[in-house]
Design a binder for these strands. Structure first.
Length: 591
RNA sequence: GGUCCUGUGGAGCAGUUGGAGUGCUCGCCGCCCUGUCAAGGCGGAGGUCGCGGGUUCAAGUCCCGUCAGGACCGCCA
């Protein structure tokens, strides 16, 4: 090493020692006769002192982010000049030699922890952004998360296996990224949305316990918590049931949380069924950091004269103290709801004396006005929001209102951790509710909610095709503070049941063979019962560092249009590249 | 595909009902300075106000279009 010590490791005990340090000039305070330099490297910061004569003369020419090698003597700081904000604050290094290893041109932004910089600029110079402690710590913490998870899994005798990233296109969920195959012009690889099929093959292969920290690719639109390439901790086990996977998931998460942020997650984690989550919280990823619940008022309003509430479902949620909102704030809710595709957001205000006012109060029947406050459990001064229409859509809207209330009313404890397993997901969802350009598996009325290989729960094993809309799957999600950070299922391992599931989704034997033949073939050779889980690894780290943006936990993230602000990818390719890649090859006539 | 927000020296922001020279903080360059630690003082450089069009005597400001970024809806098993 070019240095004898790490700058951030120096303490009073080193006083008197001559050390050689290397690092970046973080900040300089030039007093003419004495010059202070904050030397920064990965371990931390230490103050270097240059005094009169040649040393000061040369230090005077140092600039921000010059890379230097300094030889000097560790010295206790003079009385009263210690810096309690620095780990090395009791000492400083008196420089006796200075070598500039490299210079730096003027920076596009200051490398300073307490300065805000636009994200655009940060990402264009991400290598400078990462010199700041916040972004750097995020990457280091992510590395720790990886280490801890690997330790848990290795201790449980899991096998880390790499699966292909150039693989077969198997349209099942998200849009895929495609890669032209030079050696077979006209044919294309797909980048995996997840290693789903491969990990199931590894179960057939007798690995029994597989895991992988793996990059996945989905060519879908962005969100604050989505990137086109993202990472999963992918796990699959044989001879297990749902409780075994859940127990393992809890083991990993508790170890990760304890080892990084020092929080001991109480075990077992609570569980809630999908049906309950939707009914009580209007979401399949309920944020249980606050207790607000939806109230089902369908029965209460069954004879209502108010036409808007003459619907299959009417529900309500309370905003505590919401009656004091201004007209403008209440109008704001209407805009907010309309932006989510609702017609509006009906509400009533509960007055100090318990009488109803505002919004739709005057549209309700006398008896309804009298019974409403008790029916929803409101207090004087509250605001009651309503959702009416189809159950799914109305609950989703109220669920979104719930989260928004939590935010606006300050009901969320930002230091809390709330974990919950959502279990008993429906096996299928109706394709009627899907948008026109959705990539549904098969051409049937039903499509898999989780994925096509998800097993029904035992009580539905013999009859899921009789009532696909209500059949429950052995599928589960893990939710942390209202964010889905992982999910999995017990898989179907028998060909006959798989075929039945396919037929509900309108996939006949021939089509199944064409699409998933390699998996179905494998299952003919004694596939063990198996199941697994995949954690959205970026989202796990997002939770740990308490950020809303996935870009904060990715080393070199992409921005909105899939654009990489640093490398400017994607770029056009040359005519030669086009020819070689076979991008323009005419496909053989469709059969 | 849709809705909303933002775009002003290198960075972060301000700029009123349209009105005289676009201002502030930080950084950058030079000089001064022996105890600072987000050092301080003096001086200086640096701006097609994202781009195009329109309204007007006059546009950073109003209107239309467009581009880029962000958030959300759709979409993401």
């Amino acid at each position: 090493m070019l240095r004898t010590h790490e700058a951030g490791s120096l303490r009073a005990a080193h006083a008197g020692q001559t050390v050689t340090l290397t690092g970046w000039v973080a900040r300089r305070r030039d007093h003419g006769g004495v010059i202070f330099i904050d030397l920064r490297e990965a371990s931390g910061v230490v103050q270097i002192v240059f005094r009169e004569g040649e040393m000061a003369e040369r230090a005077h020419r140092l600039r921000s982010e010059f890379v230097v090698k300094v030889v000097g003597v560790v010295t206790k700081r003079p009385e009263g000049s210690a810096n309690a904000d620095l780990a090395t604050g009791t000492i400083e290094v008196y420089a006796t030699e200075l070598e500039v290893l490299n210079e730096s041109v003027a920076l596009p932004f200051q490398i300073d922890d307490h300065i805000e910089i636009g994200e655009d600029t940060r990402l264009r110079h991400r290598y400078l952004d990462l010199r700041r402690s916040g972004p750097a710590n995020n990457l280091r913490l992510r590395s720790e998360v990886n280490r801890i998870a690997r330790e848990v899994l290795h201790a449980e005798r899991f096998v880390e296996v790499e699966t292909p990233t150039l693989t077969r296109s198997t349209p099942e969920g998200a849009r895929e990224f495609l890669v032209p195959a030079r050696l077979q012009p006209g044919s294309w690889y797909a980048l995996p949305q997840s290693p789903q099929l491969f990990k199931q093959l590894l179960m057939v292969a007798g690995m029994e316990r597989y895991f992988q920290i793996v990059r996945c690719y989905r060519d879908e639109d962005f969100r604050a918590d989505r990137q086109p390439e993202f990472t999963q901790l992918d796990i699959e086990m044989s001879f297990v049931d749902q409780d075994d996977i859940i127990a393992l998931g809890e083991k990993i998460l508790t170890a990760v949380w304890k080892g990084t942020v020092g929080y001991e997650i109480p075990r077992p984690f609570p569980r809630i069924t999908y049906a309950d989550a939707m009914a009580k919280y209007g979401s399949d990823k309920p944020d249980l950091r606050f207790d607000l619940q939806l109230t089902d008022l369908t029965e209460f309003f069954k004879d209502t004269p108010f036409r808007v509430f003459q619907t299959p479902y009417v529900g309500a949620i309370i905003m505590p103290s919401g009656a004091s909102q201004s007209r403008r704030e209440l109008d704001g809710w209407q805009d907010w709801a309309k932006q989510r595709g609702a017609k509006g957001l009906a509400y009533v205000l509960v007055g100090r004396d318990g009488t109803l006012g505002g919004g739709i109060a005057k549209n309700l029947a006398e008896a309804e006005r009298e019974g409403l406050v008790k029916a929803v459990g409101a207090n004087p001064g509250d605001c009651i929001f309503f959702g009416a229409g189809e159950p799914d859509q109305s609950r989703s809207l109220l669920g979104a209102v719930r989260v928004e209330i939590g935010r606006r009313a300050g009901l969320i404890d930002e230091n809390a951790w709330s974990f919950v397993w959502v279990v008993d997901f429906p096996m299928f969802e109706s394709t009627a509710s899907l948008g026109a350009n959705d990539v549904a598996v098969g051409g049937g009325r039903w499509t898999a909610l989780h994925h096509a290989f998800t097993s029904p729960k035992p009580e539905w094993a013999d009859r899921f095709e009789d009532d696909p809309g209500n059949a429950l799957a052995y599928a589960y999600d893990i939710v942390c503070n209202g964010a889905e950070i992982g999910g999995g299922s017990i898989r179907i391992h028998r060909a006959d049941m798989q075929q039945r599931a396919f037929s509900v989704m309108g996939i006949g034997p021939e089509e199944a063979q064409e699409r998933f033949g390699f998996l179905l073939d494998a299952f003919k050779y004694g596939a063990p019962p198996h199941g697994g889980i995949a954690f959205g690894w970026d989202r796990v780290v997002m939770q740990l560092v308490r950020t809303e943006s996935i870009r904060e936990v990715v080393a070199f993230p992409k921005s909105g249009g899939g654009y990489d602000p640093l490398t400017a990818a994607p770029t056009p390719i040359s005519a030669t590249q086009r020819r070689e890649a076979g991008v323009d090859a005419k496909p053989a006539a469709q059969r």
